[in-house]
């Protein structure tokens, strides 16, 4: 079970990195192509923004998931200064992970509400008529991954593993 999960995690990590490299560079290139078409060719491109925004949303959310994977979300390091007892620190750490997990589950519900509406009502972008839910699904994807990685963290915290 555990080797399987860690293989899955490695695969996900690879996919996430591939997606951010692709979308990140694509966003930069598309915007520059936009300047070029407008200034040099005097023929502005409509709808470029729509593709840029779809790409950048997935870029952000995959980046946020990568942070979860590495457990590197921004947090205050206050307790480790205030509390010196390692046992107490461990309990506090476990509690914060549990709280985060609960909130990630709420986030999943909120994001699902957004995406299911988008699929049901089929909103689309003005120029290329791209379905909005494709972009909105990035939030749901991030929410689900947060839950998975926080569940992993909680198991580790409870079993007292260091990392």
């Amino acid at each position: 079970m555990v080797p399987f999960l860690s293989r899955l995690d490695q695969l996900l990590g690879f996919v996430l990195k591939a997606v951010v490299v692709l979308t990140g560079l694509a966003v930069a290139v598309m915007l520059v192509v936009g300047i070029f078409f407008r200034s040099a060719l005097e023929h502005p491109v409509f709808g470029l923004e729509e593709i840029v925004l779809f790409s950048v949303m997935w870029f952000y959310m995959c980046g946020a998931v990568l942070a979860s994977r590495e457990r590197s979300h921004l947090a205050a390091d206050f307790m480790s200064v205030m509390v010196s007892d390692p046992r107490k620190l461990r309990i506090i750490g476990t509690v914060t992970t549990a709280i985060s997990l609960v909130l990630a589950i709420f986030f999943t519900a909120w994001a699902w509400s957004l995406v299911s509406w988008g699929i049901e009502r089929g909103q689309s972008t003005p120029v290329f008529s791209l379905p909005m839910w494709v972009s909105q699904a990035s939030l749901l994807f991030a929410a689900v991954c947060f839950v998975l990685y926080l569940a992993r963290d909680l198991v580790r915290d409870l079993s007292g593993k260091e990392y």
């Binding site: 990195k17 951010v20 490299v21 990140g24 560079l25 870029f59 952000y60 959310m61 995959c62 980046g63 946020a64 998931v65 990568l66 942070a67 590495e70 590197s72 979300h73 921004l74 939030l139 991030a142």
Partner: peptide, 20 residues
């Protein structure tokens, strides 16, 4: 180059999800 982009994604991903 790739790791610079990945770093940027992680850094901004953390900011964007807070912004949400």
């Amino acid at each position: 180059l790739f790791s610079a982009v990945v770093e940027a994604a992680t850094t901004t991903g953390v900011i964007m999800i807070i912004l949400v």
